[in-house]
Amino acid sequence: MCAASVLVIYESINTISNGAGYFTEVNTTKTLTEIDMSALPISAMAVTIVSKAILFFLCYRIKTPTMSALSSDHQNDVASNIVALICGLIGSFAYKKSINEKLIFIGPMGAILISLYIIFTWIRQANGQVKRLTGLTADPRFLSQITWITYHHSPLIEKIDTVRAFYFGTSYLVEVDIVLREDMMLKQAHDIGESLQKKIEELPEYAFARIDHEYSHSPGDEHKVV
């Protein structure tokens, strides 16, 4: 989308330059670019605006990173087609000299503005997705939610050693270290850890719960830290 928008900006600048020569040069051979706004392109843009608006509202209601990217794409399509329709109609009337002929510049100027908007929104969207794909630490509110679930899971949990969560694609990779009694039976400790893991996985995010009986050691003593 960004590459296409850059190309649109380039073509729009050429159109403006050509139009400026038409109005300023004496005995110029340059001509204005015709803008076809017949019933067919108008109908196509109107259908696109309505359909993309419906898709935007449907995707916006689903709060996932994938749906967020799709809703942003549909929003860009709605905005770009509305601007294209309005500017195209103004440019078409200007070309036919129904209004001031110099208003034909509205078309390429509108294309430049909407292209800059699309570039900005996609760079912002890409920045957020790159952070997720590179294992960004989860939001503090999500970490607090995991801590609350763990704290209220069982009265046999003596301490919460560590709560970590990282973006793992569009979901989270969660790691929880809980401290149990040193003399607790393995079966009981396993059942507490497994039930906690299943409870966290219902959020739904991928989770891994590790059991420990003391909290004074460093995580690097047991596992490779990456």
Rank of each mutant, 00 (worst) to 15 (best):
V6I: 13
I62P: 06
L136W: 06
E34I: 04
M45D: 00
I13S: 03
A94C: 00
Q129K: 02
I192Q: 11
S98H: 14
A39L: 12
N27Y: 13
A20S: 10
I200T: 00
S5K: 09
V8C: 08
A209R: 02
L196V: 06
V179W: 08
S216Y: 14
T170Q: 06
I157T: 09
C2D: 06
F23S: 01
T147K: 12
M109Y: 14
F168K: 00
D221Q: 14
D177E: 13
P65Q: 00
R210L: 10
I54K: 14
H190V: 06
L70A: 11
K131E: 14
A3D: 11
A4W: 09
I119F: 04
A111R: 01
T33E: 14
T134M: 13
N127Q: 09
V174W: 08
R132P: 02
D183Q: 13
S144I: 04
E222H: 07
S51Y: 12
F168A: 07
L133C: 09
V163Y: 05
I114R: 01
A111C: 08
L55A: 15
T28F: 10
S71I: 10
I99A: 01
K102I: 04
G110E: 01
M185K: 14
V130W: 09
I9G: 09
T162P: 02
L136M: 13
G135N: 02
A126H: 03
A209P: 12
F57V: 12
F142M: 06
L173S: 12
F105Q: 05
F105Y: 15
G107Y: 15
P219K: 05
M1D: 07
H190Y: 05
T33V: 02
L173T: 01
R210F: 07
S71N: 06
Y22Q: 00
G21S: 00
A207R: 01
N27M: 05
I104F: 05
R61E: 11
I35Q: 09
A53Q: 02
H74R: 11
I112H: 08
E175C: 03
I118P: 01
H152V: 01
R164T: 10
I62V: 15
I90F: 07
L203I: 10
M185C: 05
I106M: 11
T31S: 15
K96V: 01
M185Y: 08
H213G: 03
T15V: 08
L196I: 07
L40V: 07
F23M: 02
I112K: 10
Q129R: 00
L186A: 15
S12R: 05
S92L: 04
E202W: 00
D221G: 05
R210H: 10
Y206G: 04
D36A: 07
E205H: 11
T170L: 01
I160Q: 12
A39T: 09
A209C: 13
T66W: 05
N127T: 08
Y22V: 08
I112D: 02
S5C: 15
Q197A: 03
A209N: 07
L116C: 15
H213I: 12
V179F: 08
W148R: 14
P204I: 00
V179K: 06
Y117C: 04
I157C: 06
S218V: 02
S68R: 05
A209Y: 03
I192S: 11
